[in-house]
Design a binder for these strands. Structure first.
Length: 571
RNA sequence: GCGCCCAUAGCUCAGUUGGAUAGAGCGUCGGACUACGAAUCCGAAGGCCGCAGGUUCGAAUCCUGCUGGGCGCGCCA
């Protein structure tokens, strides 16, 4: 729709210049001007600031420019119903209803693909998210990162990007060593030893499970053995076990990764990490100090140089990250996105610096930071302590409130704002709970369409003549909302902000509920007038499709019916 | 001390990348069902957009300085 208006504006501007009403300004105004949907419907369907921008180069008051443009409107198809000059010189356009009614044909034609576009032009993009250390099951904070990353990946797919969902397994660092030691302590405990667990060890029951598995497979062979004898085996077994737990957690959210990259295998054993460090060494990008190796990240704006190899000879996390990003870009992605917990924001300058030193334009590496989640239960904060082992796992939340509510709640806010997740609210079957509100709207639409089917009415189809018979303002407004979806998805993808879809869903479903209730007695969808009935059923079907597609992008189910009793049983 | 993020209705937050009279949900108060699904809807009250300057036709949005909160500043990951 915006494209249509852009064409009209350009033609109008060209005409005004040709006729000498406005001085030529090299076509720039049309490119600079914005066409947006005004907040208030009273201001029309679209507004442009073209005249405001043109005022200065034209040497005329903005409103005068607006008048000259308005008088020369080029609209051969009659798409514009009215043009008004408002405020300081805005041009407000109202499209003929016909344009909207015609537009709905696209919804029917594209079905489940409605809302998708090809902006990305097939560009290959890597979205790396979660990447939680394989030292325990996922907790709530990981869950938000997981759902956010997954939804962003879906948005990019929907806008013509070829997306790889990737998980970086940090299985080579000190944390994994601590995990393996924790397993060994549990292992000794299984043989009756009274062991003391140091503060830093991992307490979870899964640690004991790994210990049991190792005992069953190897008996007491590693009981008194030196650490070198058991560390590799214990690490690998523990990581493998924890990754299977993480996979189950992700499964519970409906998330699948295309690529799992192991730091140990892909970067260390492969020699890639050593190779990058060697390359940096040759180019003078690293230097030795106090027995360690430092990377000159300050050359690219970091506030201090960062160690890449400890004096023990072990590479640091940053070294892995440098090699990892080189690896990712070598795989040919147009750009890469890292979805990180906001507590890691301090690492961004280093990684960007490294990417620049790898000869890659740092603009090709983007970041999305996901802020903390505050877990609440009916308004009261849930106390969590890592030491006391009272961290609430993601799994507990998902099994308590369900996949849909979990995903929806994680997407309820902008990623860079902290999020309150109220477990009590998320599972409540009431209008306070936004996920139920939206799903209910979809079920209600389905219910109407089902009823029409049962009454023997023909399936909904685009029928321009019938649509012309619709005259309620709410109906036009609903059509506008539906047709705004492709641009909404495109904008959300560009900004990497899936929460915009959540807001659109809430507003759109609210608009439908309002329409439904307002006209439930006099202008029902299925009413005495067969022409209007046909048109309204089609409009409802378009709404249903748009809502279902949007929920689909968020990975939330669009139920066709919601049986109250069954829902309560689940809850 | 330095860096990043945040500050909008009682609460939780949107605000279309600088547009018009700043919106929504929850909460509060008052209304609407012999139902195409009341798990819904309608109405009311509620604002110094943290403060002070600046940029311009125009600022919640951009710049500077304060105030107040979160996070980071390790040879941890």
């Amino acid at each position: 729709m915006k494209a249509l208006l852009a064409r009209i504006l350009e033609a109008t501007l060209a005409r005004a210049e040709r006729e000498g009403a406005l001085p030529a300004w090299g076509g720039r105004p049309a490119a600079l001007a914005t066409i947006d949907v005004p907040r208030s419907e009273a201001h029309g369907d679209f507004a442009t600031n073209l005249a405001l921008l043109y005022a200065k180069p034209a040497g005329l008051p903005p409103r005068e420019v607006a008048v000259r443009l308005k008088d020369r409107l080029v609209d051969p198809e009659g798409a514009i119903a009215s043009v008004e000059i408002a405020g300081p010189g805005f041009l407000n356009f109202r499209l003929a209803p016909e344009v909207w009614w015609r537009g709905l044909a696209e919804v029917a034609a594209r079905g489940a693909a409605f809302g998708r576009t090809d902006l990305g032009g097939g560009a290959r993009v890597d979205v790396e998210f979660v990447s939680a250390n394989p030292t325990g099951p996922m907790h709530v904070g990981h869950g938000r990162g997981a759902v956010t990353g997954d939804a962003i990946a879906a948005l990019l797919s929907a806008t013509g990007h070829e997306v790889t969902r990737e998980y970086y397994v940090n299985d080579a660092g000190a944390q994994v060593k601590i995990l393996a030691r924790s397993v060994h302590l549990r292992y000794r405990e299984l043989f009756g030893e009274a062991v003391v667990f140091p503060e830093e060890s991992y307490p979870g029951a899964y640690v004991a499970d790994v210990a049991k598995r190792l005992r069953d497979a190897h008996g007491d062979r590693f009981l008194g053995a030196p650490e070198e004898a058991w560390l590799p085996l214990f690490s690998e077994t523990a990581v493998e076990h924890v990754l299977s737990l993480i996979r189950e957690d992700l499964d519970g959210l409906g998330i699948r990764f295309d690529v799992w990259t192991s730091e140990r295998k892909a970067l260390r054993d492969s020699g890639e990490l050593a190779e990058v460090l060697g390359d940096f060494r040759r180019r003078g990008l690293v230097y030795d100090q106090d027995g360690a190796v430092f990377y000159r990240s300050t050359r690219h704006g970091d506030d201090k140089d960062r160690p890449v190899v400890k004096s023990s000879g072990e590479p640091t996390y940053l070294a892995g990250d440098i090699a990892y990003h080189r690896d990712k870009f070598r795989r040919g992605f147009a750009w890469c996105l890292d979805v990180w917990g906001a507590d890691h924001h301090g690492d961004i300058p280093r990684v960007k610096a490294a990417v620049a030193d790898l000869g890659i334009d740092p603009a090709r590496l983007r970041f999305t930071l996901v802020q903390m989640v505050n877990l609440l239960r009916d308004g009261k904060p849930v106390k969590m302590s890592k030491r006391a082992g009272t961290v609430v796992s993601l799994r507990e939340i998902v099994s308590e409130v369900g996949r849909d509510a979990t995903r929806f709640f994680f997407l309820l806010r902008r990623g860079d704002a902290q999020l309150d997740f109220d477990v009590g609210l998320a599972k409540r079957q009431s209008d306070e709970n936004p996920v139920f509100y939206v799903q209910y709207g979809h079920a209600r639409l389905c219910s109407i369409l089902r009823r029409a089917r049962e009454a023997g009415l023909p399936p909904p189809a685009h029928d321009l003549a019938a649509l012309r018979a619709l005259d309620l303002p709410e109906e036009l407004s609903l059509a506008r909302r539906v047709l705004a979806l492709p641009e909404l998805v495109a904008g959300a993808a560009t900004a990497l902000e899936p929460h915009r879809l959540v807001f659109w869903l809430q507003e759109t479903v609210a608009a439908f509920h309002g329409y439904y209730t307002k006209h439930r007695t006099t202008e029902k969808v299925i009413g005495p007038d067969p022409v209007k009935t046909r048109a309204r059923l089609f409009l409802c079907d378009c709404l249903r499709q748009a809502v279902a597609n949007t929920l689909g992008l968020l990975g939330v189910a669009a139920p066709e019916r919601m049986d109250r009793a069954a829902a309560e049983e689940v809850g």
